[in-house]
Design a protein around this nucleic acid. Structure first.
Lengths: 143, 143
DNA sequence: ATGCTGAAATTCCCCCAAAAACATCTGTCT
DNA sequence: AGACAGATGTTTTTGGGGGAATTTCAGCAT
């Protein structure tokens, strides 16, 4: 279970330091993928496997499905934090999320997310103001 | 399981260097064939056999099936990486995929794909929008 | 409130492995 | 026999991964 918001820097080699509170859960591996709203998703191996199974069920004869599968797998990276708690982010993923130096790592329950600092600031400012409004719309989803 | 996106060059002899992360899986052989959307598919022997069985089950009376089968098998080449992790691409396959010098090798789960660099850039830019659409639908399924 | 202690974060440096260019060999065709 | 094309091997350079050390931060006790 990932919770909280943490500020970090990306070093010259494209590596980011994981928040200390996330390390234990990710110690035996993690998978990073292109997420929604221009951020990166970080999954535990267990969560990733669930996802992978779903994707594999998609029909290969469907053109949209092929496009999605290509994006999904080519935009994924298995890894593990080193002894200092760092993970390296492949170039194509950094490009996708627009990560430069300042990033924000947030915990979102089952997964963690990595955001460019400014993008996150903008996004959270926008959604915070309409927080209760959005919540109301979600009421129908049984929360 | 093939994941990620890698930039490589084709040398003067028509060989491409496999990404280091793909080598182990392909060490004991691979099959390259004409893929969909003007790229090359690269399969492990095991995956290839599965595919071969599936295609053999296709009805011989269907004209599209016949055409597809012809393309798929006639364009296939068995091979193995050399000690430096290189595989040579037959001329007809290079022509088919329009490969010159800069290529991109991507992992797509069960298979890998080889793309001309520019074609891939174009394709992935075009399909990125459908990526978030489909991803959102998947997210709705409780992932 | 202030100093102390430990852990976490950032920077720096080194080494190894992968990539790309270069070179050699073998067989075939003329 | 020579030349060319194909394949295989070798060397050098670059980039990435890993580790260590210093600095910063936070928590704690005095």
């Amino acid at each position: 279970m990932f919770l909280g918001e943490f500020q970090h820097l990306i070093d010259g080699k494209g590596r980011v330091i994981l928040p200390a509170k996330f390390r234990e859960e990710l110690a035996d591996g993690l998978v990073i993928t292109k997420g929604l709203e221009d951020c990166l998703f970080v999954y535990t191996p267990a969560e990733w496997n669930k996802l992978e199974d779903k994707i594999r069920e998609m029909p290969l004869t469907n053109q949209n499905a092929r496009a999605f599968t290509r994006n999904f797998f080519s935009g994924a990276a298995k890894g593990a934090p080193d002894k200092q708690g760092r993970v390296s982010l492949p170039q194509n993923l950094r490009d996708y999320a627009g990560l430069n130096k300042d990033v924000v790592v947030i915990g979102v329950g089952a997964r963690a997310e990595i955001w460019d600092k400014e993008k996150w600031a903008k996004y959270s400012a926008e959604t915070e103001s309409s927080y209760s409004e959005i919540a109301e719309q979600l009421a129908g989803l049984g929360i």
